[in-house]
Design a protein around this nucleic acid. Structure first.
Lengths: 260, 260
DNA sequence: CCCAATTTGTTCGTATGTATA
DNA sequence: TTATACATACGAACAAATTGG
């Protein structure tokens, strides 16, 4: 098992300055360690008592900090094993954000995996809309990538995503085409960028000529358009994505569920 | 302030039987007390040490149970005041589920309040779709109610909702028309039914003749259709609602945010 | 198969801080 | 100011899951 030795970490005592609760300062410290690469995705953290004594806080305070990080999908706890930095190669994350599901009256095929096909890949300059979403200046260098997602051998979603060239320096179409896992896993594995949350806005629009051709549907057919901005630590925008979805046989499902 | 006296409650010691954690048994006990009406919405619970000693658990265990209930929107804590059963008349809840927002490039009018207008109100029998969603038998007696929501004086959303007559016995159109707060607040105030979570599925469709007339748009214009099932305690379905949204100037926003 | 070591999960209790009325 | 209630912080002991011998 991958264990983090205390020597290799930078677990120094918290310098309690301001009036913020101690457990939040601990949380910040842990986030810093992940951002700085002291802990990488999939790493196992030192055990709780080690971290607590290193940071010179009680174990209860440490646990409260870790509780919040678990709730925010930054860490994962496994009893008997340890506490790990979240990776995005799990099933869960593929469906965490938007989530296209077949309107299945028949079989309970809950999670169908899409086959992805890269339609286009270009280096270009950020449009007004893209620059605003990503917090870049107009015309900043970006990648603009289009993917087609197939469900049950039929095209259902067209993803057009935009990411900063500065943040994803050296990205190639081959990396995109040959990747074995999700896009966000690629971001994490190859660029150390962890997507933690996203904002989404959806609307119904008539399919553009372009989209209708790629999705194999009639032009002007009503399709769902989802605009997503994905964020990493510190609410820094990472990706702006427009998904065009053929909802004739599929639904866009939001996960407000929170089942008790 | 409304304070709950210990005498009026049914806080008896937890009977620890199975192997489930104590704090979850405490949570169940608290939910039971709310479901049974021992604590009503907006009530202030006895203070933590009173509950803890009554249930014969430590204060830490009680707090862990309450933590989860707060996370699930069942309780609200207010430092210095007390712990309260959630009410659904707050701003928050009006926008908790789906959430139509203006595509505002200009003003930051975050939350616009809709003016609601009851379009139709009828007692009828559940369709196949409605019966399935609500867990009723086909043809069970239901209310079918249509509302039109105006934003900035213009019709934007058509809500068609279906609820069981058995669950909402004696509901009148007047109650619906004259209510001062949200529909879920009405459910809670008049029928003691608290909506805790909802599932939603969205798709793009051409506007029906009916919908286009009510929303004042061209027939077959792409509109967003959101199918929602709302649940109360014990995952019991309460309401099935189809919202038809004119997304020419508004977006459907989902709240996966969880900002740190 | 069982045992022992390790790690998180649960439960307990106490003391002090902070917000509210 | 005072009393009350929740919020934070501490620490100890045991339970449960996991792993490796």
């Amino acid at each position: 098992m991958t264990k983090q030795t205390l020597a290799s970490t930078a677990l120094t005592p918290i310098s309690d300055v301001d009036g913020t609760p101690l457990y939040r300062q601990v949380k910040r410290a842990l986030i810093q360690l992940i951002e700085n690469g002291h802990f990488a995705p999939a790493d196992c953290l030192p055990n709780e008592s080690v971290i607590a004594t290193s940071l010179q806080v009680s174990i209860g305070t440490l646990r409260k900090a870790v509780d919040e990080l678990v709730a925010e999908n930054v860490l994962v706890r496994r009893q008997g094993k340890g506490t790990f930095v979240t990776t995005h190669n799990s099933d869960r994350f593929l469906f965490q954000f938007f989530h296209v599901e077949r309107r299945a009256t028949d079989l309970s095929q809950a999670h169908e995996y899409p086959d992805v096909e890269c339609v286009s890949f270009e280096k270009t300059k950020a449009s007004e809309e893209e620059a605003t979403a990503l917090g870049l200046r107009l015309g900043a260098p970006v990648y603009r990538i289009a993917n087609r997602l197939m469900l049950s051998q039929r095209p259902v979603v067209l993803d057009r995503l935009c990411i900063s060239q500065a943040m994803f320096h050296g990205l190639t179409q081959a990396q995109f085409t040959n990747r074995t896992s999700t896009i966000y896993n690629l971001f994490q594995q190859e660029f150390g960028i962890t997507v933690l949350r996203a904002n989404e806005r959806a609307r119904a629009v008539p399919a553009s000529l372009d989209a209708s051709r790629i999705l194999g549907i009639a032009p002007k057919l009503p399709v769902l358009e989802v605009h997503r901005t994905a964020f990493t630590f510190g609410d820094k925008p990472v990706e702006y994505r427009i998904s065009t979805i053929n909802t004739q046989q599929h639904d866009y499902v939001s996960l407000l569920s929170k089942r008790s």
